[in-house]
Design a protein around this nucleic acid. Sequence first.
RNA 1: GGGCAUGUGGCGGAAUUGGUUUACGCGCACGACUCAAAAUCGUGUCCCGAAAGGGAUGUGGGUUCGAAUCCCACCAUGCCCACCA
Length: 835
Amino acid sequence: MSKYPHKKVERKWQDVWERRRTYETDLLNAQKPFYNLMMFPYPSAEGLHVGNVYAFTGSDIFGRFKRMQGYDVFEPIGLDGFGIHSENHALNIGEHPIRVAARTQKNFYTQLKKIGNGYNWDAKLETYDPEYYKWTQWIFLQMYKHGLAYRKEADVNWCPKCLTVLADEQVISGECERCGTKVVVKKLKQWFFRITKYTDQLLEGLDNIDWSETVKVAQRNWIGRSEGTVIDFPVKDSWERITVFTTRPDTLFGATYIVLSPKHALLTDNKLQITNEKEVEDYINKSKGKIVEERTQKAKEKTGVELKGVKAVNPINSAEIPIWVADYVLGDVGTGAIMAVPAHDERDWEFAVTYGLPIKMVISATGDNAPKQKMSKENMRCYTGEGVLINSGRFDGISSQRARLEITESVGGKMEKRFHLRDWLISRQRYWGPPIPVLYCKRCYSSGGEEGVDYTEKDGEHYAIIPIPEEDLPVKLPYIEEFRPTGTDKAPLANVAGFYKSECPKCGGEAIRETDVSDTFLDSVWYYIGYLIFRNQKSEIWHPKNGWSGGSTLFRKWLPVRMYIGGAEHAVLHLLYTRFLSYAFYDLGLVHFKEPFTVFRAHGLLISEGAKISKSRGNIINPDQYIEVYGADTLRMYLMFLGPFESGGDFRDTGIRGIARFLDRVWQLYKCVSNANSAGAGDRLEKIVHKTIRKVTNDITHLRYNTAIAALMIFLNDMERENTILQDTYATFLQLLAPFAPHMCEELWEMLGHNESIHHSSWPAFDEEKLKEETFQMAIQINGKLRDVVTVPVGVSESEATKIAFSSKKANKYLEGRKYQRVIFVPGRLMNIVI
RNA sequence: GGGCAUGUGGCGGAAUUGGUUUACGCGCACGACUCAAAAUCGUGUCCCGAAAGGGAUGUGGGUUCGAAUCCCACCAUGCCCACCA
């Protein structure tokens, strides 16, 4: 047989699979549904990179395995093509996003087909398809109608390069997640989703889902639960009081001053009647313009201004302490005000040192935390740990922990849980997204007072918010030539009169449309449901005016997703938002489950030559060239062989030859296959067959593809040592290899005379009985060191094993006739003589 | 600064979860085939040592008959988050 002709074989089967609809699933009549989902990609200019191939292949192997185990596998694919990412790319190359999308879509699907994954192409979707985003808009309306979407003015993150607001989750270390530009704060009216209503549920739900632990931890951290106390500090000679939140009420005696955030409500209209109003106002204005990064930079010196002519009173000891305003205190964390305890908080320490404010130690470190030398003024440092109270009046000597409760109680404080998670800002002042489906009507505002209608202010005028009626969806994104961001806080659509001028569906009067579009992550919160809807979109039941009522049978059969595979970088973006929406859908009676993904596994990161794959490093790897030279099967297997799927791998193309060699040997072995089908007694390969079935089955189940492939290599090595191979043995081998190398195995399977696809054959079963060995290699150790290895019968007794061990020449050399203290016998494994 | 990982040959990585360290593959060396090369096949390949033997899982300690695996400290690398009161 000549060399394996990968091009011919792969093209042949890709065509046949498509023609025979090998991987399409009858969603309504499936008996054993298994929804195998992979995160759909953002399309980019270069098309698929090898990292995508890595992720998709790992997911596809699992799906193929489940299919062979008898499940009806639903494995859909689509494109997450709406959003800033795609639009920025279009801007970069100076082409309209609609045209870019059309081109990349074609390219992507062609590439995806060449990898040979078993997708349900019938169900494919693109988020920029109006048939898709009419549902994205419908979801917005459901959220709005149930009070989960609202419009409010807030300090928001603004990216000066992308010229749009960003969600908190999209700001990384003060920089825009997409373009790396430093983010500034702006006060704008924006649309939010009320994710904070689900804080507790989202946190608790994590305990009951089978997800990669790293992602759960990331979500817990992002939700950021902290327990503390809310304490009121009265303002001297005033009715006002300053409420602070602290996790360390035990340090209350050490509070030597109060700090208000520049955004604190008490600072407006000089409510505190301070004497240096002008100075404070200047400071507030200055801090407003600061970019987020400048303010959060740890090294950055802290600044602030004292509020003159006013003092706060520490409720525990009636000490009068100064009040400051400083932008190291954030307006949207806690209560926007803190009690500063410089002796026990690093930020307060830094600030107190800068401005010469008093520092009072109230916690003394104990035990292991205790300082080696006695603290003096000179070597004094801030201590943030726990300890015993000092300088705290009647609380002296008690532990931090106890003091938290007792001090809280004695000042009438309230224990409270606080969370870092804040509502999700979903409006974007961009073009390439689904228009938010609401109208603003002036006349409905004037007629006023109607129940269930919200009012808002826009450009200084008052309007009623009128949701677009469901039957009018989608609100189509119009094609406009001038799609560039405007540079103001308005979206490009705000310049398109033909779009925003509209008629109020309620009163028939003039109304204007919302011109912002929604965040990309809203497109992807429901796509796993979208695949089911899309598959059936021709039916009349699938119209937004009917909601999802037509889906209950389908939803119950297929959801939640049984296996979801994707990147861990979406832990607090896509994965948290999706859980949130799913909880909301449940409450709105739209779905029957709360958690959307029963199992989620984060695949590892594929790196190249030790570095993260990125355009700037110039180490992008295009899979096409490898598919061209070696074939898709080889590339698939090579990627999976690099290391455990969940830890990623380093792509060095030297190793790919090894896999190419392996597959070619599998191909060559075909000529050694005998016509005989059933094993005679004493088939030397019987044991390895069953061993490999067990190993590969177990490894695929746990996504340990690298060791599954190693086991198949061992199997091949053993087969090659024989002159002839039984047909059954070879067929079993092909079945085990099929999820990894689907094209070649299909071809050889057909050559063996099968008419049905190998991918619909049943996964081989192993027989425990056939795995039983008669003897094993027993290790003989002396004091835990290996001295000899002997072959002994499997059921050997301890006394027999002891006899055998002591008769070992090698072992005896070390015993030198000495008496042993005892022996440790591990059945089936070893004998350890302790001397 | 916080959280989470990881550290085993020249390299990617195995190790029945506390029991024979280095499976499988790459690379390398030698050999076969060839006029030659490539491809392919075969043999070998943790380190020191002529051998007997000894030493090795980032470093140092501990628990144990026995530790890559468990505990403590330190070092290094990677990822995520970060003025969260």
